[in-house]
Amino acid sequence: MPLRHQSPYIRVALPDDEEELSLLDRSTWSTLHAVSPQPRPPYPPFFDERHAPGDHLVAELDRRIVGYVRLGFPTPLASNAHVRQIQGLAVADEARGRGVGRALIRAAVEEARRRGARRLTLRVLGHNTAARKLYESEGFVVEGVQPEEFFLGGEYVDDVLMGRSL
């Protein structure tokens, strides 16, 4: 069923979203953005002790989850508790090009501010040009590059560190 052209509804994830988010995560897996191997059964839980439902914002179109963004702390240190990090972003294939990713990034910025953060950071693979352009258009700048940090799909790929003030 095609999705209507409308703005996505963004909300905090609920425990009941686990199955739908797990399926979305598996269906969007790609070496374009994933550094871990492709998930295989038995699948680990989407939510765990480090990533609770409240750490995720989900995007809905036509009452279906079509994307999520995961916010977390970059380290457990109190000295950088003022920083939040985007630790995952996924958009369903059928929802691409409809502003879902942009809406999730904007919601993550607002949520990080609401939680008292002064900075928001992320890591993106160097060959993920579309994601990098989207982040740049939302105010993120490259703050560092780890050359050839990962070997994915038969090639060495840079890890690009990006951030922005809030």
Rank of each mutant, 00 (worst) to 15 (best):
L3G: 03
R4F: 10
H5A: 14
H5I: 14
H5F: 12
Q6Y: 10
P8T: 15
P8A: 14
P8V: 13
I10D: 01
R11H: 14
V12P: 02
A13W: 08
L14H: 14
L14S: 11
P15G: 11
P15F: 03
D17R: 04
D17V: 05
E18H: 07
E18S: 07
E19H: 05
E20Y: 00
E20W: 03
L21C: 06
L21Q: 01
L21D: 04
L23P: 00
L24F: 05
D25S: 14
D25L: 01
S27A: 11
S30D: 14
S30L: 09
A34D: 15
A34I: 07
V35M: 12
S36L: 13
S36W: 08
P41V: 13
P41K: 05
P42V: 04
P42Y: 09
Y43K: 05
Y43L: 15
P45W: 00
P45R: 01
F46G: 01
F46P: 00
F47Y: 07
E49Y: 05
G54V: 05
G54Y: 02
G54N: 14
H56K: 04
H56Q: 03
A59N: 12
A59T: 11
E60T: 15
L61A: 11
L61K: 02
R63V: 13
G67P: 02
Y68R: 04
R70T: 15
L71R: 02
F73N: 11
F73I: 11
L77R: 15
L77E: 13
S79P: 04
N80V: 12
A81P: 01
H82R: 07
H82N: 09
V83Q: 10
Q87I: 08
L89I: 15
L89V: 15
A90L: 03
A90V: 14
D93K: 09
D93G: 11
E94H: 04
A95H: 05
R96D: 09
R98Y: 12
R98N: 03
V100S: 03
V100F: 02
G101L: 06
G101D: 10
G101I: 11
A103M: 04
L104N: 02
L104T: 09
L104G: 10
I105A: 08
A107Y: 09
A107W: 09
A107P: 01
A108R: 04
V109P: 00
E111M: 10
E111Q: 12
A112S: 09
A112Y: 06
R113K: 15
R115H: 00
R115E: 15
R115T: 08
G116D: 12
R119A: 14
R119P: 06
T121S: 10
T121A: 07
T121K: 01
L122G: 02
L122V: 10
R123G: 12
L125R: 02
L125T: 08
G126E: 07
N128I: 06
T129A: 13
A131F: 07
L134H: 04
E136I: 05
E136C: 01
S137D: 08
S137W: 08
E138P: 05
E138Y: 11
G144M: 08
Q146P: 00
Q146E: 15
P147S: 13
P147E: 04
E148W: 00
F150W: 07
F150D: 02
F150S: 03
L152K: 09
G153N: 10
E155W: 05
V157N: 01
D158Q: 03
D159N: 13
D159S: 03
D159G: 06
V160L: 06
M162C: 03
M162Q: 05
G163R: 01
S165W: 15
L166F: 14
L166K: 06
